[in-house]
Design a binder for these strands. Structure first.
Lengths: 205, 205
DNA sequence: GTGTACCGGTACTCGACCGTATCGGTACAC
DNA sequence: GTGTACCGATACGGTCGAGTACCGGTACAC
């Protein structure tokens, strides 16, 4: 569609001209991630994904070489950030917003993390993809938030609680199902931030 | 060896007289838990355990009906508490001891938790056994510690941070490998408790 | 109209592993 | 010595899923 008046019948560039539209691709990715959340990584089969999306196994294997690479692609495509953009003007306000946002997607993302639990011990690519999809973008946003708070003088740069804020928030998100049998919801997360994170930073409510 | 002069050839009581000594049994349990930590729950095979302990698969299946039941038995037998017995006289002292103890076994136990990650989503028995083996004893000990602290008047009973102490400690233990790539060690845990848990409780170091 | 290349469907190979069956050996009871 | 019952080894049946091969249908280019 752009510049194909070069030499001969477009020898270069778009070598693979798949008929899979981006929307269709997203269906595949959503299906495999849903099935992972539901049954765990090892229990997910390419046949199951093919059946649930009404495509054939051949189609999946034509686009992605193997099951691990397929899952990695799905994770990469699901990469998105939910903390970025939060900027209420105060660190306490930002962290409350983070808590609320974290509580929103806690069920889905925590489940995914849990379901991939032992798989990432075996497959470094999978581990990397998972970190890049779910963890690092939020971690970056969180650090940026804290940096702004320090810059505004709300927290001393030497406060030892600073470095533990991400671990506190992600840790509590991750562990609550095991301790209390239910995923962390926005209310719970806000209560936690106000009861523990803010006081440790010296920000009384 | 005790009372076998009852009626006939000991019809009751010790119906199964296995030749597996308790020490031998412990070898089986250690082997399967080690392999789970190493390769994850689904990747562990009864054949592998048999080979590594130089017994036969038949022996394992004679003692335990199936792989899940075998693993559950191993978990139950590994049940032990590492926080119980800590009593330094002050809540801050107790929590520092907890941090150190938690950091000690963090590698092994966190790995086990991670390796069983998606399996416990599928098998309720496994989930229950895991909670009873690794989580609940420590949770009970921790709650008892906090209760003593409140009783001594070190912390107000209404302090909202109280209910989150276990989640903070277990959460950070669990999440650190994902965030920073290494298991929590005693030093790290003590720093965390001093920087976050104690201040939130109003216990300045 | 003709060719091309991807699509979905199905059948297939291959390997892995669960759980069972069978067999000879052996410790222990009596 | 004789019986019993558990041990280790090995072989086997059955299932399941990864990845491949093939085949007819069809959209699109020219």
């Amino acid at each position: 569609m752009t510049s194909q008046a070069a030499d001969g019948p477009e020898t270069a560039v778009g070598s693979r001209r798949s008929k899979i539209t981006p929307e269709r691709e997203r269906e595949f990715f959503d299906a495999v991630l849903d099935q992972i959340r539901e049954s765990g990584y090892e229990a997910v089969t390419m046949e199951g994904v093919a059946a649930s999306t009404r495509c054939s196994k051949s189609t999946l294997y034509r686009q992605w070489r193997s099951k691990p690479q397929f899952v990695v692609a799905a994770l990469r495509a699901s990469r998105r950030t939910r903390f970025a953009g939060i900027d209420t003007g105060s660190l306490a306000g930002d962290l409350r917003q983070v808590a609320r946002a974290a509580g929103e997607w806690s069920g889905k993302d925590t489940r995914l993390l849990q379901a991939l639990g032992n798989a990432i011990l075996q497959d470094p690519d999978l581990k990397k993809a998972l970190r890049e999809a779910l963890v690092e973008p939020e971690l970056d946003a969180l650090r940026e938030m804290l940096r702004r708070g320090v810059e505004r003088g709300e927290v001393s740069a030497g406060n030892p609680a600073l470095e533990h804020v991400p671990a506190q928030i992600f840790g509590v998100l991750r562990i609550r199902p095991l301790l209390e049998g239910e995923y962390a919801d926005p209310d719970y997360m806000v209560r936690f931030v106000e009861a523990c994170v803010l006081p440790a930073l010296g920000l009384a409510p």
